[in-house]
Design a protein around this nucleic acid. Structure first.
Length: 553
RNA sequence: GCGCCCGUAGCUCAAUAGGACAGAGCAUCUGCCUUCUAAGCAGAGGGUUGCCCGUUCGAUUCGGGCCGGGCGCGCCA
């Protein structure tokens, strides 16, 4: 069910109100109307800067425009279903129009959240759009690194957010289970096995040096597994390592709907078909014995080879087929989450999308920057080849799932991240994940202490919540749907972590100042209702991050 | 050389789509547990947002030019 108090709904109504008032002023083409929640609550619960934007158009001072808008907005509130929402509108700082929410509006919101045990309802910003989010997609040549872990955390969280916002989300892992790297993997295992058998063999530098290869070789030897040839070693390594990756992700709380095999794609004629399609559209040509894709037609620096002169495909060829297949499977929005080492690849794949006849907006690529691991103040160097890197498994064992996920989500995805193992391990105030969970646990504890008190919605009088800490909490609850909209706009789950920290701060402050359980029965009921509401918000927020909700700490 | 990300308090980072006084945490210092969990709260100090121009009513945000850091620039994947 559509909830009346979610931010996008209020935003739409205020936006329509402003447009109507603007047209009364003779402005037919209004600029983009931005409704935001000001940083300072003194500046209102909602705010808009239209008056500033219109100043050059109307050739009037922002303040004059704001004044003209103010009276007509006040008169028209009822027309846009806002008379039960907006208490007052004021002008500030030379032209901002600031909207203040009615207390009764916030009370009804809180009671509804308690009643439905849900904050967002059918917010449906996604309108059921069929969305494919492809992430991690690490080559199955070794355990996952912390960089993959960050991509996993971001992708999983974003998928959860988009699903809640009404997108039809499918999570996919593109498994690069064939090609050069996989061949080298097979050879690496074979060489390690032969070394175990006592042979003196040269182990080339470009082969996988990690200990896990040696472990696999030992397993073959100990279990006396019969492997005939190079392909046998390759398949064995592939199967084992894919399993390792799946287990790691599973323990990290990240599940995929589809594991998409490149090998299967390659054996299906889909690559040939995709290239034929592009050839038909005249985006393919031959030169110097190779086959090229005209990516420059769509803004790429240079055209790209798809079939090498030795007749083998480059990596791009299956990728073209893969993206075509995504569209053929009915997805309307493709989200690819990649590491920073792939950012140069973005114009190429955007070109592919357009050559295939799709709007470039139908593909969003999120580049997740690297996380640098610090141990005792020193960064730990990383190299998959040399097998010198900290795996997700190690971090999980050392730090635990909640802190790992939180740390990886704590920063904007496009900014570098320092992951301090010692800090993440600390079960203390220095560690922000506990700060949020502690707020949740405190709420649960109070509710548990009061479990004999029945929360009958009809007996609850929220207007008894007169303290500013209580008002701040109600306002923050309202903000939750706003934060979700920001996540969508920025395609980042980071705003949720920031929000939950703010919410936890506001709660701890309230907790410190006021007792929930007191002699005053009605006030107790009102406060219990408030924290019950908070419990629901925290639960929903933590779920979106994939972080557990401890009832006791 | 070209492209992408970045440069904000001692450190790690915020600042929502160009908005209001640039904010948090850590660290440092000072207070607060006979009361629902002190993994908490309150307070203090700490800034020429790398530098210079420009656009704007308004720039940490946009444009141009420098300086500095990271990554990528293959008929590798």
């Amino acid at each position: 069910m559509q909830k009346e108090y979610v931010f996008p709904k209020i935003e739409t109504n205020i936006s329509s109100l402003l447009k109507s008032c603007l047209s009364d002023l003779g402005v037919s083409e209004s600029p983009l109307i931005v409704i935001e929640i000001p940083k300072e609550r003194a500046n209102g619960d909602l705010s808009t800067n239209v008056a500033f934007r219109l100043s050059p158009v109307l050739k009037k001072k922002p303040k004059e425009i704001a004044e003209l808008l103010l009276s007509s907005c006040r008169n028209k509130l009822g027309e846009f279903n806002l008379d039960s929402v907006v208490k007052d509108i004021t002008i500030a700082s030379g032209g901002f129009l600031n909207f203040y929410l009615k207390d009764s509006f916030l009370y009804e919101m809180a009671l509804d959240i308690i009643k439905t045990k849900d904050v967002l309802g059918d917010i449906n910003l996604g309108k059921g759009k069929n969305t494919l989010i492809e992430f991690v997609s690490a080559n199955p040549t070794g355990p996952l690194s912390i960089a993959h872990a960050r991509q996993a955390a971001v992708g999983d969280s974003l998928a959860r957010i988009l699903a809640v916002l009404g997108f039809k989300v499918t999570r996919e892992y593109y498994n690069n289970d064939e090609g050069n790297q996989i061949n080298i993997l097979g050879k690496s295992l074979e060489l390690r096995y032969r070394q175990l058998q006592g042979e003196t063999v040269d182990f080339p530098e470009d082969h996988y040096q990690g200990d896990y290869i040696i472990d696999l070789a030992k397993e073959i030897k100990e279990k006396k597994i019969k492997i005939k040839d190079e392909q046998g070693f390759r398949d064995f390594a592939l199967e084992k390592i894919t399993k390792v990756i799946q287990d790691e992700l599973g323990d990290f709380g990240v599940e995929f709907d589809v594991w998409y095999s490149q090998k299967k794609l390659a054996s299906s004629k889909k690559i040939e078909q995709a290239l034929d399609l592009l050839r038909k559209k005249d985006f393919i040509y031959e030169n110097e014995g190779a086959t090229w894709f005209k990516s420059t037609e769509f803004g790429d620096d240079k055209d790209r080879v798809v079939v090498k002169s030795d007749k083998n495909y480059t990596y791009l060829a299956p990728d073209i087929a893969y993206h075509l297949d995504k569209f053929n499977r009915g997805f309307k929005w493709l989200i690819n989450i990649w590491g920073p080492d792939h950012h140069g690849y973005v114009p190429r794949i955007k070109a592919v999308i357009q050559a295939l006849g799709h709007d470039k907006g139908s593909l969003s690529v999120i580049i997740v920057q690297l996380a640098t691991i610090y141990r005792e103040g020193k960064s730990v160097s990383m190299s998959t080849r040399r097998g010198q890197y900290i795996t997700l498994r190690e971090v999980l064992n050392e730090v635990g799932r909640d802190a790992t996920r939180f740390f990886l989500l704590m920063r904007r995805t496009d900014s570098h991240l320092d992951f301090d193992l010692e800090l993440a391990k600390k079960q203390s105030s220095e560690n922000p994940v506990y700060y949020i969970q502690y707020a949740y646990a405190r709420i649960c504890s109070i509710l548990n202490n009061a479990k004999d008190i029945k929360l009958n919605l009809k007996e609850i009088n929220l207007s008894l919540l007169k303290e500013h800490e209580e008002g701040d909490l109600l306002q923050l609850i309202f903000q939750f749907s706003y934060v979700m909209e920001v996540c969508l706009r920025q395609l980042d789950s980071y705003p949720v972590t920031a929000y939950l920290q703010n919410l936890a701060t506001a709660f701890h402050r309230f907790y410190d100042q006021h007792k929930v359980l007191s002699e005053d029965k009605n006030l107790t009921l009102a406060r219990l209702a408030l924290i019950r509401c908070l419990q629901i918000v925290f639960a929903q927020g933590l779920d979106l991050l994939g972080i557990s909700k401890p009832e006791k700490m």
